[in-house]
């Protein structure tokens, strides 16, 4: 990186306000750090790596944050950057955000995802296992391993497969919850309901699935959709709010027509 203008040769100087919280019981607070000479080509998380290296040298405990694949697919990273889940870029997870998006001298606030259903465990790390419990409640097709029919015995119209794939792309990061003023999980749940409701394989359990997943979602303490669409704006995969509408339709339909469990032979 020879030549170029100042940010190339000297890098960015930044002021960071980072949320520090010892554990779930601690109330937490912001701490301020200065970082110098950060390359604009490095990623946001690589900038945090450098902060941690600096803190460690100074004998101060590094900042804990979740991350893993660093290519925007595992859904581990989870920061609120300057008030926005996953930061300023659309359809970009924190790990894919690069420092060229920031300018020299900038002040950056870094917080964990905040929601009642996502308790903070340390610093920027929170517990998103509520999502797993929602999937366990019904986010699947009950097809035990065995010898099912030949894959091509079940044609799926390309349009349906494509729409299902659009929804199935969800990485389960929880940015939709963090961005929503009501901390609603309806984009996450709607995406899984849609993925399976759009495919023939999802039909047998279609009603049961949406009812069970919504029930678990409510139990976990997520709020309800207020049609603000912050979720779609924050989603690193650009999952559409259409999926929430589809879930609501599925839910309404299922509520009106599904027989309560165990009453299949009752009545009349």
């Amino acid at each position: 990186m020879s030549g170029g203008h100042d940010t190339h040769s000297h890098g960015l100087n930044l002021t960071l306000h980072v949320w520090r919280q010892k554990n779930a019981q601690d109330t937490g607070h912001f701490e301020t750090y200065s970082l110098h000479g950060i390359s604009e080509h490095c990623s946001f998380l690589e900038m945090l790596d450098q902060l941690n290296e600096q803190l460690l040298k100074e004998g101060r405990e590094p900042v804990a944050f979740d991350h893993d694949c660093r290519e925007g697919i595992c859904g581990s990273c989870s920061l609120v950057i300057n008030g926005r889940a996953h930061g300023p870029d659309r359809e970009t997870a924190t790990c894919q955000l690069h420092m060229r998006r920031f300018h020299d001298g900038e002040t950056i606030y870094i917080e964990p995802f905040r929601a009642k259903a996502f308790p903070v465990q340390r610093d920027l790390v929170c517990d998103r296992s509520a999502f797993d419990r929602i999937i366990a409640a019904g986010g699947f097709v009950s097809a035990s391993t065995g010898s099912p029919q030949d894959a091509n015995a079940l044609p799926v119209p390309k349009e349906a497969a494509d729409l299902a794939m659009d929804a199935a792309q969800c990485i389960g990061c929880g940015a939709c919850v963090a961005a929503c003023p009501n901390a609603a999980a309806m984009l996450f749940v709607g995406a899984k309901v849609s993925h399976l409701a759009l495919l023939p394989q999802g039909q047998p359990e279609r009603k049961k699935r949406v009812l069970a997943m919504v029930e678990q979602m409510d139990k976990e303490g997520f709020g309800n959709c207020g049609n603000i669409y912050e979720c779609e704006a924050a989603c690193p995969k650009g999952i559409s709010v259409e999926n929430i509408a589809r879930m609501n339709r599925e839910y309404l339909g299922a509520s009106l027509t599904a027989r309560p469990q165990g009453e299949a032979k009752a009545g009349f």
Binding site: V141, A143, A151, P155, Q201
Partner: peptide, 19 residues
């Protein structure tokens, strides 16, 4: 492949609906 399709894995398809 059969098992994954039965689970609802949205593999790419051609216009006729086949994989």
């Amino acid at each position: 492949i059969d098992q994954c399709v039965a689970q609802g894995v949205p593999f790419a398809r051609e216009y006729g609906g086949l994989l």
